[in-house]
């Protein structure tokens, strides 16, 4: 019969898993992605174009009849919404990769249990789920920014940094979503609620398409807690030199970093308690 016993690999296996386990978990998600690679590619290219046309060509002509913050200091409405569009795209990616895909690994296919039965630790499985989103964000947001640039929506050279801000925003949301999705043991309906009542309002009311100040005062706190508001405001400073106090810019970054850290740690905690029960 065929020999199935090869050389002993365990010492090396444990050492490598301790060192590169997070990457192995990420690599697994990458491999799964190949199955829907076409959809991702189409979305990465088509979505930006649809938004840019609808807002930059359609809505802009209407908005730009008045002057004010919406004209982005003369650079036009598209330059005003560009950082918001980038942030919204980041949120969409976070939603696609951190909800049902994560639930499947715990509940439907239970592949995360299989990874943990191998040398990977629960923390590495959780981190892999976050890192995969970062990779997709880096690619997706860069492509988006190139298209925005082509349409003249990135007037300042600092505008390219908006990509990193959007990636950070998407990572913060993804980390929180991974933690939440990992905790779901029953049906997936809470996810639909989160999308409808958290993510979608966040996309609309974070000072994205109009300044937060246009909202009634009692609705403005939605913006302050929203990572998308922080990313969009900071993005406008970088994209066309919108004016805000320096401490506020620092606060934007600090808030996004803090949210990422909290979400990521929670994801590790939830994953650990679920896998090592």
């Amino acid at each position: 019969m065929t020999a199935v016993r090869g050389g002993r690999v365990e010492a090396r296996a444990a050492r490598r898993a301790r060192r590169y386990g997070t990457w192995y978990a990420t690599e697994y998600r990458l491999r799964l992605m190949r199955a829907y690679g076409g959809t991702i590619l189409a979305g990465t290219l088509a979505n930006p174009l649809i938004y840019i046309f609808a807002l930059g060509v359609g809505l802009a002509t209407l908005v730009e009849q008045k002057t004010g913050p919406l004209s982005a200091g003369g650079h036009g409405y598209l330059a005003f919404v560009a950082p918001a569009l980038l942030g919204i795209a980041a949120l969409t990616v976070a939603m696609e990769e951190s909800t049902y895909a994560v639930m499947a690994g715990f509940k439907w296919d239970q592949t995360f249990f299989a990874m943990n039965a191998a040398p990977l630790s629960p923390a590495q499985v959780a981190s892999g789920n976050v890192v995969i989103v970062i990779l997709r964000l880096l690619v997706g947001c860069s492509v988006y920014q190139v298209l925005l640039f082509a349409f003249g929506a990135v007037p300042s050279p600092w505008g390219w940094l908006t990509v990193l801000v959007a990636v950070l925003c998407g990572t913060a949301v993804a980390a929180c979503l991974v933690a939440f999705s990992s905790s779901l043991e029953g049906e997936d309906s809470p996810l639909a609620l989160v999308m409808r009542f958290v993510i979608t309002p966040m996309m609309l009311f974070s000072g994205t398409f109009f300044p937060l100040a246009n909202l009634p005062v009692f609705l403005q706190p939605i913006g302050w807690v929203s990572p998308l508001w922080h990313a969009t405001e900071l993005g406008r400073v970088l994209n066309y030199g919108a004016v805000e106090p320096a401490w506020l810019s620092v606060l934007h970054v600090a808030y996004l970093l803090a949210l990422t850290a909290v979400g990521w740690l929670l994801a590790i905690r939830v994953t650990t308690s679920r896998l090592s029960r």
């Binding site: 690999v9 365990e10 010492a11 296996a13 444990a14 898993a17 301790r18 386990g21 491999r31 799964l32 199955a35 296919d109 239970q110 592949t111 249990f113 299989a114 039965a117 191998a118 040398p119 990977l120 630790s121």
Partner: peptide
């Protein structure tokens, strides 16, 4: 020594957790 032990184990769980996508 979880990883060191698991590197030397094979585990067949009660319900198959194969990758159906692959």
């Amino acid at each position: 020594s979880g990883p060191e032990i698991r590197a030397q184990l094979g585990v067949v769980p009660q319900s198959d957790n194969l990758d159906r996508e692959l």
